[in-house]
């Protein structure tokens, strides 16, 4: 058992964790943050992608004790209540969501890309989501959605018609 302090979506938590507990277990089983999905448990699929200290990590590959004093953002931390984040808005608008199981991780990878540069090239986007598998879309619409999200962020809003 080890006690850890961490901040998730702006909220501070103090938790006691078992040594075999992964971050995905903390999020899903301990805190009920079920938006992070487990698709493979070995860092291949990216469905559990979250942001730790601003960088994308697979929550299935990070042990709970490694998150001590870390700041984490999950899909639950993106929207402002029912007000969607521009990336979420763009994903719906473009039709980049099908089965939805990759979507939370994909959106967080998109955030990591756009946090660095709101006007990335398609190549940069593809590079940025290369750790996230999607079996439905063929990726084209996901890349389109991230491009649109960049535009929304540059314009400072969610208005897709502008």
């Amino acid at each position: 058992m080890k006690d850890i302090n961490l901040k998730i979506n702006g909220k501070s938590y103090r938790l006691s964790t078992n040594e075999d507990m992964r971050l995905i277990d903390v999020l899903r089983d301990e805190l009920g943050l079920l938006g992070s999905k487990e698709g493979c448990g070995e860092g291949e699929c990216g469905a559990c992608t979250i942001l730790m200290e601003g960088r994308t990590v697979n929550a299935c590959m990070v042990m709970a004790f490694q998150t001590d004093e870390k700041e984490i953002i999950t899909i639950e931390g993106l929207s402002n209540g029912e007000q969607l984040h521009p990336i979420q808005q763009a994903f719906i608008e473009i039709g980049a969501v099908q089965c939805g199981f990759c979507t939370p991780g994909m959106i967080l990878s998109a955030k990591a890309i756009l946090d660095k540069d709101t006007n990335p090239t398609r190549e940069m986007i593809r590079q940025g989501i290369s750790g996230n598998l999607c079996r439905c879309t063929g990726y084209a619409k996901i890349v389109d959605a991230i491009e649109l999200a960049g535009k929304l962020l540059r314009n400072g809003g969610n208005n897709c018609e502008a």
């Binding site: 079920l34 999905k37 899909i75 639950e76 969607l84 979420q88 969501v97 939805g100 979507t103």
Partner: peptide, 16 residues
């Protein structure tokens, strides 16, 4: 058309 389950899926609220 915006798909009916789009909102819940981008919010991570869709229940699998």
């Amino acid at each position: 058309a915006i798909r009916v389950d789009g909102h819940s899926k981008v919010l991570g609220k869709a229940e699998y």
